[in-house]
C-alpha cells in the first residue's frame, strides 16, 4: 500500500514539476523535496548532479553561446531548465531509494510477474556479459582491435539470444508445472 501511494505521489509530483514554470515554485519544490529526503539528501543530490552533468552541460553551454551571439540571452531559461531537470532526476533517485517498485505493481499479477522475471534475467545476463568482456581482455594486448571487439560483441549477442530463447521455454515449462496457467494443456 505504502509503495503504491509513493508511486502515485511520484507521478503527481512529476506532472506538477512539468506543469509549473515559475522558477520560485520550482525552487520551493526542490527545497521541500530535499528537506523531505532527510539525511540521504546530499548523496541523492550528488547522484542526480552527476547523472545530468553531461547532457545539461552541453545544452546549457551551447544555448548560452548561441543566445549571446544573437543578443537574446535569458538567464531565467537556463535556471528554469536546469532546476526542472535536476528536480525530476532527483525525484527519480529518491523514488528508487525509498520504494520497491515491484511491490507498487502488486495490483497486476501479470505485470508484477513480468517485472520480476525480467529483472531476475537482467541480473543473470549482466553478470555473464561481464565475463565475455573480461575473457577477451584476458587474452588480448592493452589495446584491443576493432575487429576483435566486434567479433566478441557478436558472439556475446548470439550467445545471449540462444540463452534467452532457451530460458523462455524453460521458464514457461516451469510455470506450467507449478500450475501458473489456468488451463492445463
Amino acid at each position: 500500500m505504502k509503495d503504491k501511494a509513493a508511486l502515485l505521489l511520484y507521478a503527481a509530483a512529476v506532472l506538477c514539476v512539468t506543469l509549473v514554470h515559475d522558477i520560485r515554485f520550482l525552487a520551493a519544490g526542490l527545497a521541500a523535496t530535499l528537506l523531505f529526503s532527510g539525511r540521504s539528501a546530499p548523496l541523492l543530490a550528488a547522484r542526480a548532479g552527476r547523472a545530468i552533468l553531461v547532457f545539461n552541460g552541453i545544452v546549457s553551454v551551447s544555448y548560452a553561446a548561441l543566445a549571446l551571439l544573437r543578443g537574446a540571452f535569458q538567464p531565467e531559461f537556463l535556471l528554469r531548465m536546469n532546476l526542472r531537470v535536476f528536480l525530476l532526476t532527483y525525484l527519480a533517485f529518491l523514488l528508487v531509494s525509498r520504494v520497491k517498485p515491484f511491490r507498487a505493481l502488486s495490483f497486476s499479477p501479470a505485470l508484477l510477474h513480468l517485472f520480476t522475471l525480467t529483472y531476475g534475467q537482467i541480473i543473470v545476463f549482466r553478470r555473464l556479459f561481464d565475463d565475455f568482456r573480461l575473457a577477451l581482455k584476458s587474452r588480448s594486448p592493452a589495446r584491443i582491435g576493432t575487429r576483435d571487439l566486434y567479433r566478441n560483441a557478436g558472439a556475446a549477442g548470439s550467445f545471449f539470444l540462444e540463452k534467452a530463447l532457451h530460458s523462455s521455454t524453460e521458464i514457461a515449462d516451469a510455470m506450467r508445472s507449478r500450475g501458473f496457467f489456468r488451463d492445463p494443456r
Binding site: L128, D131, L134, A135, S140, F159
Partner: peptide
C-alpha cells in the same frame, strides 16, 4: 602498471585464466 602496453602483453602471456563458463571465452 597494466597500462604499459609491453608489460600488459608480457603479463597476459604469463598468466592465463579459464572462465567458469567456456561460452564466455569463445568468439572466433
Amino acid at each position: 602498471t597494466l597500462a604499459d602496453a609491453e608489460f600488459h602483453r608480457d603479463f597476459r602471456r604469463r598468466v592465463a585464466f579459464l572462465f567458469q563458463n567456456p561460452d564466455a571465452m569463445i568468439f572466433n
